[in-house]
Amino acid sequence: MHDDATHGQGNSVLLPRPTAWPMALALGLSLIFAGMVTNVAVAALGLAMTLAACVGWFRQVLPHEAHVPVAVIAEEVEIASARTLIQRPQRSASAAPRKVLPVETFLIGNGIRGGIAGGLAMTVPAGIFSVLKYHSFWYAINLLAAGGFVDWASASNAFLCQFHLQGLLAALVIHGLTSLLVGLLYGAMLPMFPRYPIVTAGFMAPLLMTGIMFSALNILSPILNQRIDWPWFILSQIAFGLVCGYVVNLHAKVRTPQFQALSFAERAGLHSNLVELDGSQADPSQTGVQRGTQPGTKNGDKEDGAL
């Protein structure tokens, strides 16, 4: 509680009165404990001290808390900084909050949507592969699920071609979770790479993912590693990447040349090199960086110029 009653008479402040009773109570309790490893007499002394301290402490707070006025020493504390800020050339009313970086951002929801769409798209090549090669739609699903079931490690092809409810559920969880997470990542990261969205989203990321899987799959799921067909795997990854990237990009407004001219750190929202978008184009909801010099200037150390 913040009571203004802490102001004492005149130019003084009321502070709690110093007291030794808390220390005495602590000592008393410690002596009781010490008595348990030394001698009962020590504990008895401690008990007496504890009781006395309890009374003493009690009197400090009841019926009124003990206070002592402390005189305030008049003094002047200067709060100033020798450092300056960069002057803004013009300050428009739409000066947007600097905290919203980068200049444009995707909605998180788009990432989720993209993840769902991509996850669905991915099942198409996987399903085709499964049907073509093993004449069963369930094969691919069970193979994925086998990562979650250790005792499926030595399962036969026939077993994998049958329908298993737990296999379906496990595959749904593994596939759904991964798709959502990767979709989110697409939603967050695609705007950082605005230039070649199809290459980035559709090919680079899936290939990277495939590389990681290739090296880790033996430990992650040996059964999958034995039976996986890498070309089909890459195909399904690319299907995911293209669809997810497409859905995410549907809502993007990152095609503007101003945005593409920004440095990576700025697109990521890590850092601002003080580039300002054209005031008229810069919608307050989208504009983050507004301190700077000229519209569309590309990074560089414009701080100096701005001085």
Binding site: P16, W21, P22, M23, A26, L27, L29, S30, Q60, V61
Partner: peptide, 17 residues
């Protein structure tokens, strides 16, 4: 504030013990 002092002292005595 008094509990604060008590807490310090009892920790301190703990170390001494």
């Amino acid at each position: 504030p008094r509990l604060n002092a008590f807490s310090f002292w009892i920790s301190a005595f703990g170390g001494m013990l």
